[in-house]
Amino acid sequence: MLVLNKVKIQEMADNIAEMDAVKGRSLWTDARRRFMQNKAATASVFVLTLIVLFSFIGPYFAVWTNEQIDWAVLGRVAELGQPSFANGHFFGTDSLGRDLYSRVIQGTRISLSVGFVGATVAVIIGTLYGAIAGYVGGRVDQFMMRIVDILMAIPGMFVLILMLVVFGRSILMLFIAIGLLAWLDMSRIVRGQTLSIKNKEFVEAARATGVKNSKIITRHIVPNLLGVVVVYASLLVPGMILIESSISFLGLGVQEPSTSWGALISDGAKTIRYDTEWQLLFPLAFFVTSLFCFYFIGDGLRDALDPKDR
């Protein structure tokens, strides 16, 4: 009986070896398809890609650098500093006669990297912290989440400003300070999700198989969390950009001659009564467009990854 079975199995296996393995459709593939059907979201991805590309390719077309002062314009910015192709100031100049085109490019780079780096730090720390707290549970969970509560009770903006004042204003400090604050919400969301995932049968199956707890977290819990994490992270990026902008608007963000969207908008707003509205409008247009894009993408991701909620 056993021998016969083996022969049969071998025959079957031989037949099947000739067939190609069918490609499965993962939940990610499905989600990507749903995302692509969302017109606002795909358009936003396109526009955002253009903005990012612009910040990389733009400098090759620039006539002026972001630090150079155009002495011919200085003092008569309202008349001579207007956007024009003739003198190479495509977006005009700022109140000191520096080329706004180059400065917007530079500000775009800083603002976007603050957004992405801040969100990445928040996602990594928050996901691991929340997943561990939720999975281990009990006293460890209580202790870890109380730490989060305590950190949350401290007003974030205050800490941010304090850190920038005490340790000096640098872009690195800005990254660290924003990243440190942003993971708190993330860890709470992830912990809640972990609590519901860890009681699912497939986690029990993994435990019954003998998989280590650390492996269960990385192999089973985190991949199932990622949907929520991705959605939240896509909303975190504009949040980070907004925080950086408000800090810069207050004059505490990046240091001259570097700049960011917030700093440029702040400068533009200060000089608006001298008829130099372009100084406000160009950075503002980039800022608003990007934020819109981020929010549309976040919306699209949520619909794509969580089809039940529609």
Binding site: W28, F202, A205, K212, K215, H220, P223
Partner: peptide, 28 residues
């Protein structure tokens, strides 16, 4: 080893069948 009541819930939705079945080998 153990077999569970809800067949779908006992399989990780993010893993394909090959990975799921191979998990005990990968573990031990």
């Amino acid at each position: 080893q153990m077999i569970f009541q809800d067949p779908l819930a006992s399989l990780d939705p993010r893993m394909n069948i090959g990975e799921i079945i191979a998990e005990p080998i990968k573990t031990h």
